[in-house]
Design a binder for these strands. Structure first.
Lengths: 90, 90
DNA sequence: GTTCCTTAATCCCGTACGGGAAAAATCATA
DNA sequence: TATGATTTTTCCCGTACGGGATTAAGGAAC
């Protein structure tokens, strides 16, 4: 289910087993985080602990809550090895 | 100043005048938003209006405040034509 | 220096984030 | 179905987001 969502978002820049997924909403981020956590075989508690956040936050993050604090989310992404890139005209 | 920061973050994927900038912190996002706003020749008030947020939020966004609400920030990025991508191993 | 424009800080106030624990709900498996 | 594990919800509470207005500060131009 979550893995299928990732697949559908893979861009043409797909190289060497690296995928680029488009992010527009907090829900997109939630799906990615969910997928990554599953991939790492972690429970909420373990993942949250790894990233220094609470289980409650993690639960809301994966369910795509939009009012989460930006910095916490970015930190989690970084800890999970999910590299954020912004593409825009120079 | 801000434009220089963008330049230093340009990745090898730079093609057809499109730049990819790495995002790790809310400060990175602030710099990007600032740069884009300048590029568009907008004041805080105008830019905020375009994105349906208040001036106060905009000011905090550009100054890299980490506790801003994720969804609002993502919406602004989208409105500014800044495409977010996540890169991670499939 | 003065003036004007822009950005940053402050204020009021209602709403709400998030830690951590506990309870409830859901899921997976035997 | 029962059981155990996991996820979701709820609770308490201190802190704080963000709209919009106002004030303060900063910068550019003359």
């Amino acid at each position: 289910m979550c893995r299928d969502s990732i697949t559908s978002n893979i861009s043409e820049r797909d190289t060497y087993g690296v995928a680029m997924s488009r992010i527009e909403t907090s829900s997109d981020i939630g799906k990615l985080v969910h997928s990554k956590r599953k991939e790492l075989g972690l429970t909420y508690k373990e993942a949250a602990g790894l990233c220094g956040v609470g289980v409650r936050f993690w639960s809301e993050l994966e369910r795509g809550k939009s009012s989460l604090h930006l910095g916490k989310v970015l930190f989690v992404l970084m800890r999970l090895g999910l590299d954020l890139q912004v593409e825009g005209r120079v």
